[in-house]
Amino acid sequence: MKKIVVASTNKSAGKTCIITGLIKASGKKCGYLKPFGDRLVYGGKKIWDLDAGFMAASFNLSEKAEDMTLGFDHSKIKYAYDEKTIGKKLSDMCAKAGKGKDALIIEGGSEMWHGASVLLDAVSVTKHVGGSLALVVDGEEYDVLDDIFFMKKYLDASGVKFAGVIINKAADVESFKKTYLAQLKKEKINVLGIIPRAKELSYYKAKHLLDHIIVKNLTGNAGLEKTIKSVFVGDMAENAALSNTAFKSEGKMVITSGDRSDMILAAIETASSCILLTNGRMPHANLITKAVHAQIPMFLVPTDTYRTVTQIEHLEPLLTKDDKEKTDLLKELVKKNARIKEIL
């Protein structure tokens, strides 16, 4: 059974998306682990990683999501394990997760050095479990090259097997190949794939906010499946918003203070996908009723508009098991642009 650790140099490089695309496109039976979690979900007095939950549900894995992760907090890992027991624990997890599978994919923490102090960084995990390490990178072209060149040197020095690099969210695949592929080959860097950027992957459903931002849902089940494609901050007068083309765009989420009845009404009447109200200000009951009738989800957050917008800006459009359009798209992207057989 092949074991591969998928790591990245930044949190949102797209490791889970690449792994999803790989499993779907390869058609292989794969096991999955994420030893050091970074997307915690708490429910029923248990915690699990969101990505692990997604993998378990999407690929019908027999392991429970909470058993795919050792912990999320350094102090917990340090309290529960030492140098010897952590290696053994990982080996046991690998044996269980890989049983009867063609391959075992182990996803690294947010960045590949995350967890180094408790021996759960990507390199330490690769050493514990054996197998090779694949690096997923994204970003500006020269930043990507810097990351790849630096990590190559580091991985060679650390003695782990470097399977190669997957360049994700490339703005122009052909142009990248033309400009940089030769340079990468010269440095003996194995390019496993160059995956183009797809704007559909940045969309998320309104209900995503319920899971990832602490909000009060004012409109029940109304419109939770609506897709949010853009964000509009309603800090101007309602007539100014109405004359703004971004306000007229399909699939927008409007963020405004809960006491801005004019803006809320305009957002309802322009068929927004979601209305996010700030400052903990409850809107008038009539507006909530109107939103329910229009099937527009309306959420309330206690934070001010600036802090809320900052939170939304950092919100990752994570995959969910019922995101069939997105997972099908990933399958196609990986199939077309990555050397699957070499990876798995």
Partner: peptide, 13 residues
């Protein structure tokens, strides 16, 4: 165990 999970959840939140 429940306490350790809750501790991590609270820190994360």
């Amino acid at each position: 165990n429940e306490l350790m999970d809750a501790y991590q959840a609270i820190m994360f939140n």
